[in-house]
């Protein structure tokens, strides 16, 4: 059923919540547990602004199981303004519209549908900025 697996990641998935270092201000995404020996309180939850630029992109035409109804879909590495890079789909974006360095913004969308007896998995995607 994969219920808990998706549930425990909801903050990062739904609202791009990563972590910020209380001392250096460094922002990281995705959030991670403290390293062995690292103080628990060094990293605090931090919601990233959701703006960034396309580092690279591709189009998935041979999808994995669970994504058969989506192709062709755009996937990208996005360099967020705060520094971290994330992997995500681009949405509301034509295949010939995207380019490296294109500014994008985060939206929360359906990532996949686990069927009539399963969850709808929601999470971040990116799209060209709506001004």
């Amino acid at each position: 059923m994969d219920l808990a697996k998706h549930w425990r990641l909801r903050h990062a998935r739904y609202r791009l919540e990563g972590q910020r270092n209380r001392f250096t201000g460094e922002v990281r995404f995705p959030p991670a547990p403290p390293l062995p020996g690292e103080r628990e309180d060094i990293w605090e939850p931090y919601i990233l602004k959701g703006r960034g630029r396309v580092y690279s992109f591709s189009v998935v035409r041979q999808p994995p199981e669970g994504f058969e109804d989506q192709p062709p879909y755009l996937v990208a590495l996005v360099r967020l303004d705060e520094g971290p890079m994330v992997t995500a789909q681009l949405t509301d974006c034509d295949l010939d519209q995207v380019a490296i360095d294109m500014p994008v913004e985060m939206v929360t969308r359906r990532l996949r549908d686990l069927g009539p007896t399963g969850l709808i998995v929601y999470g971040y995607k990116f799209r060209p900025i709506v001004s």
């Binding site: 789909q89 949405t91 509301d92 939206v107 929360t108 969308r109 359906r110 990532l111 929601y122």
Partner: peptide, 13 residues
């Protein structure tokens, strides 16, 4: 609505 949109996603935005 696009294929990845529904009442929840639109409400969020």
């Amino acid at each position: 609505p696009g294929p990845d949109e529904d009442t929840i996603t639109m409400s969020i935005e």
